[in-house]
Design a protein around this nucleic acid. Structure first.
Lengths: 245, 245
DNA sequence: GAGTGAAACATGTATATACATGCCATGTCA
DNA sequence: TGACATGGCATGTATATACATGTTTCACTC
């Protein structure tokens, strides 16, 4: 009566698979109540701690909902909102097997930023920020215009970095341990400057990713990644129940 | 020598907090090796199972990396790739406090789909699919054009649904338990048809979200959500380390 | 009939124990 | 000096036991 698969995986994984199979087949419908831990102990022939671990992990993965003293229930599917992964352009190009090249357009300390930048950094008075503007090429075709404003209080030598390599990103990360990120994806027509730098027709569509990061309570970086719409898209594939191979 | 906070939270949570505090303060740097489980047992005065659970959960949350027989290490920050949440338009409008209205443009059973659709559904021969085209309005301004192809083998009465309410989505979800999703975000200029339905100038930028879902190994739905670039953007805010309240 | 208390049952946590599995350094033997 | 065996140590899993905590039910009392 074990009902557990006989592969080499650990017992608690088999219990998880058993539960997921019953959910997937529809035998245990949405919001249905599962057998109690003790029931599963008796029917599956494993200890309660093992069952408990399996159910606890399935709960933290969003498959189950547990209420102390009441029972375990099949969680409603989390399909309507799904996650999309955003990577950085250098790794992305490299993962595709393409050749990456970065062209530095601008690299400056801005002593008197615009009101919009001061506002974005949540400064209470005028403070200098570092500003970089880099074009990323994939196989010598421009794909991304990366504009970044950095808080010099957190990143001492940002402008001294080597902007053609990924080391800049790692330096940034080391200086600004991430506590919060804000993303905004939008589609806008290319302005004259963007069209020139990205070698695309003016007013053609761009996919723009805004990204703002915090370290503690202070704004660390404000980024704008502009992509040529006809050459770039953001994608992800997601398996809610499957495990990675 | 407990070094653990004295709040009311469970012991394993205190151990997790203790570890996170040491990482956050920089005392344990990136890739540094943590004390072994037995060391923590001795210094914190809890059992090894409790330490083990804390370290296991921190590993699954991405804070640590563990190698059997070797040790436990501080994981590199997972900042470069971040997640963006995509919701559905009806909830989104409602959450903003706006008024939602849906206009059904088309509702049909397609007996002979185009080659592109057959390919997208991974059909081995010509099979009928259901097709819907709906415009979503926020305060009577069109914001999204929703085109959906549905596999009738999985969703028996898709065309009979009430397309002006969110019940359609729930019916879809019930018929097609999600096993896999694929997303693709791109920016494209509006074509004549899209410009007309979305009441926007032709060739203006659109933010397009493609979404393809599987149930088991069969393709369940193929969706295209087209948004007016100047009226819509996708956003998210993310706290990597903080716990939900 | 309403309220109360206790039992029964559910999940949650903590521990001790045992063994499995994987890696590495050390030492021995050729 | 090199190859190999082995012991030590690290994490990984499984179990039995105990108690904590929260919910429901049901019988008993007023």
């Amino acid at each position: 009566m074990s009902a557990l698969s006989d592969s080499a995986s650990p017992l608690y994984e088999k219990v998880k698979d058993f539960v997921l199979a019953n959910i997937g087949s529809g035998k245990w419908a949405q919001n249905a109540r599962l057998p109690s831990e003790n029931d599963l102990v008796n029917s599956l022939g494993v200890s309660r701690m093992t069952v408990h671990r399996a159910l606890r992990e399935l709960t933290s993965e969003g498959h189950l909902r547990r209420v102390q003293g009441v029972g375990t229930f099949v969680a409603p599917p989390k399909a309507q909102s799904t996650l999309i992964e955003v990577s950085n352009i250098i790794n992305e190009i490299r993962d595709r097997g393409g050749k990456h090249r970065a062209g530095v357009i601008l690299l400056e300390r801005v002593e008197h930023p615009t009101a919009a930048i001061i506002d974005a950094f949540e400064f209470d008075r005028v403070k200098p920020v570092d500003h970089s503007l880099v074009v990323h090429f994939e196989n010598d075709v421009p794909v991304q215009l990366e504009e970044r404003y950095v808080n010099p209080a957190l990143v001492p030598h940002y402008l001294d970095q080597d902007f053609t390599s990924i080391a800049t990103l790692e330096y940034l990360q080391r200086c600004t341990p991430l506590t919060e990120v804000e993303h905004l994806i939008s589609a806008v027509p290319a302005g004259p400057e963007q069209a020139r730098l990205l070698q695309m027709p003016e007013r053609d569509s761009c996919l723009v990713l805004h990204r703002k990061t915090w370290t503690g309570a202070t704004v660390a970086t404000v980024n704008t990644f502009t992509h040529v719409g006809s050459r770039y898209s953001l994608g992800s594939r997601y398996r809610p129940t499957h495990k990675p191979a």
